[in-house]
Amino acid sequence: MMFHFTKEERTVLISLAAIIVVGACLNYLFKTNPQIKNMVNVLESDHIYRKIDINQASQEDLVKIPRIGPVTAQRIIFYRNEKEGFKSLQELQDVEGIGSATYKTIVKYLKISP
């Protein structure tokens, strides 16, 4: 009876074999083509940040971003009004209270719409 598998045993064996085959193929593909792995790796990329337009964002929108509290949000809006809008995101570093570490964190959440 060594070749007689129950329905459950066949299910488990086929699933396990399929995962190993597919896994091995994907592993080979990712190792030989790192650019494909980068494309697949959506979770570690900056693309999935929901970016808000720095020139349209309200105080409420800005405080939702990590490292931006009510005071920093007000300073950003004040700076924006003074300069009639941000021309580039790098100008954020000119806002009081936004250093390079904070800028690195918040820039992922912001954009400038044309």
């Binding site: 597919v22 896994g23 994907l26 990712f30 697949v40």
Partner: peptide, 15 residues
């Protein structure tokens, strides 16, 4: 065989 589960999981989760 953990690598096989990990890479299949990586693709499913990212998808």
């Amino acid at each position: 065989v953990a690598f096989a589960f990990a890479v299949c999981l990586e693709v499913s989760l990212n998808m």
